[in-house]
Design a binder for these strands. Structure first.
Lengths: 351, 351
DNA sequence: TTGTACGCGTTATCAG
DNA sequence: CTGATAACGCGTACAA
């Protein structure tokens, strides 16, 4: 049992590398080399052991901030998400933490709570922390001014030696994992059409939300090509979250259209919409079919099971990390993440 | 448009406080004081403005690592969770990030992926980062050796000036938010008994998992007192995750017991169990009633809606942060988070 | 109020 | 292979 160093009150003294060196009877430099084989492994075995033993004895904990100062770089990766409580983001976060951990990086999590302004603030914070790289997750807005500021902030960050990547539309000048929203939504549309559906409605998300737009347009365009265009009034704008789906469905029902199947541009919206439909007395999927997008884990346990486009969010997190950590020399890369249409009970086909 | 400093290749030079001071024509100390009013605000207005202008011109970004060195403390809070993709943890994380942000702290997220060994590793990492405080989230195991090591690690961390708090059983020598699992589960049992149920089964989680145990025992003891004890064979051990609920339910069904209602010790397990019951051909809630614990957000959109014990996970995250950040002088505090029984469609009462 | 100078803990350069 | 020593960027006593 090591006798406690320092006084009883407040911060106990933390053993420093100098302490370890003294305890081991070597110089600071040698102690440093022994503990981190950073440069060529070049410390005699017996000395190395003496140092390691001393470090263990003093319960030495290398000061990462001091290392960051001396090395000129940190082992920190910044992760910015819109809402960590949303399964889409938390699942991607799981992929990022996994990959970051494998790379020996600590993850600093920033939760914007859907406020684009805070994205900028967090980039600044991560810049101050000298995070080695930043991963920005979430669909972009169609907002030239906002995107310009974000692009500038990321460019400045990269000019200072950081690397960055994002999940979403590759419009910020950094590498990105971009889900093939348009293509997969079209695929979904064709699959539903193939089941025999002809009267569609779309809970389309916010007009300016690029991911929502891509899914909405991909879906509608494919149906138009198939000769079953979605009427404008059957495309309801709404928020990109669960309550948006719920409210949008209420609105859709209020319009009294003749609809067989509803496509919500993400799963949580679809789930909210199904609840709204049920609240309105509909029997699902008999009275109305539903489809979503993302394939969040929770879908396994809803009834009817939800037809959707499955994307591998954990892997997207991993890939975004790989992009962020890859050599930042070349041009920004874009990785397309494909989506797989999964037909489930919520779309049994029209009666 | 500021002309880019430094060469084209690699890391552009980052403006330092000295640069700002020179640009503003003041000393380093004055620049420091002007930018961080840390000590008494004591810099002439015109100088302060000159400094701020210079900082803006150079796009100065204070180096948080250097500040940490000089100040002797960081603005980093460590958050350790079992699984960030699990809605229970991600929702608590939302509360923690919210509170941390309000306190001006950056959150470093550590995902153990349910490996207790990694909790220790992350505490070490956060120690190295000199995180100001650590929040550990998740039920503890009944593992004296493991808990001892964890307690020692946290004690060492605190002795070095860090503060810590946890969500779960208050057995690690640090402040804790402890959900009243036992009491709330008992309350749930009484409510179900009050509905007329008499034949119960429990998907009880792992034998050594303290949260599972508290809920299981609270539930069973209350029923025993009411004269409707749960037979031993109706208490099925299983993993504390969704698949555990699914598998446990399969096992329960295989036992062929006469059961009216199943209590799973958390919501994701309950959802998995319901799916297993459906896969076995049961009609819910007609053939079998279900209840869970936690009230995760996803419950709003399942059918039948799930009876459960609601706990405010976002607020638990906030409270844990407050505990962690509160003066660490006194004894560890324990905040009891209560749970509210919410009866929903999954327990319509026995036929 | 302002400036000087030292220290924070490490790494890395450069002699020995 | 090892040991001094100069950075790294900033905060802050201390002196002016």
């Amino acid at each position: 049992m090591t006798p406690s160093r320092g006084g009883a009150a407040g911060h106990g003294r933390v053993a420093t590398l100098s302490d370890v060196a003294r305890e081991a009877g070597v110089s600071l430099a040698t102690a440093s080399r022994a503990i981190n084989g950073s440069t060529n492994r070049s410390v005699r075995e017996d000395l190395r052991e003496r140092v390691l033993a001393a470090a263990a004895r003093l319960d030495y904990s290398p000061n990462a901030n001091a290392q960051a100062m001396a090395r000129g770089r940190t082992a920190t990766l910044g992760l910015i998400v819109h809402d960590i409580a949303d399964p889409f983001f938390s699942t991607i976060a799981a992929g990022v933490t996994e990959a970051a951990d494998a790379a020996g990086l600590a993850v600093t999590l920033a939760n914007t709570e859907h406020d684009p302004e805070r994205e900028l603030g967090f980039i600044q914070t991560l810049q101050n922390l000298r995070a080695r790289s930043i991963i920005l997750v979430g669909g972009r807005q169609d907002d030239d001014e906002g995107n310009r500021r974000l692009r500038d902030a990321l460019a400045a960050y990269q000019e200072r030696g950081g690397s960055a990547a994002m999940v979403g539309q590759p419009i910020l000048g950094v590498s990105a994992v971009h889900v093939d929203n348009r293509g997969a939504a079209a695929e979904l549309a064709r699959a539903l059409h193939g089941l025999g559906y002809r009267r569609f409605a779309v809970l389309g998300g916010p007009a300016n939300h690029l991911t929502a737009r891509e899914r909405r347009e991909g879906f509608c365009e494919a149906l138009a090509e198939l000769g079953s265009p979605v009427p404008d009034e059957a495309v309801v704008p709404c928020a990109f979250v669960r309550d948006g789906g719920y409210d949008g469905m209420k609105e859709l029902l209020a319009r009294g259209l003749d609809v067989e199947v509803v496509f919500a541009v993400n799963d949580v919206m679809a789930l909210g919409a199904m609840t709204a439909a049920r609240d309105a007395g509909l029997d699902l999927p008999r009275d109305l079919a539903f489809a979503g997008f993302d394939d969040i884990t929770a879908l396994r346990d809803v009834t009817p099971t939800l037809t959707t486009v499955a994307i591998d969010m954990v892997d997207i997190g991993r890939q975004a990390t790989a992009l962020a950590l890859g050599e930042g020399g070349g041009e920004p890369q874009v990785v397309i993440a494909s989506g797989d249409v999964v037909l489930r009970e919520s779309t049994p086909g029209p009666r």
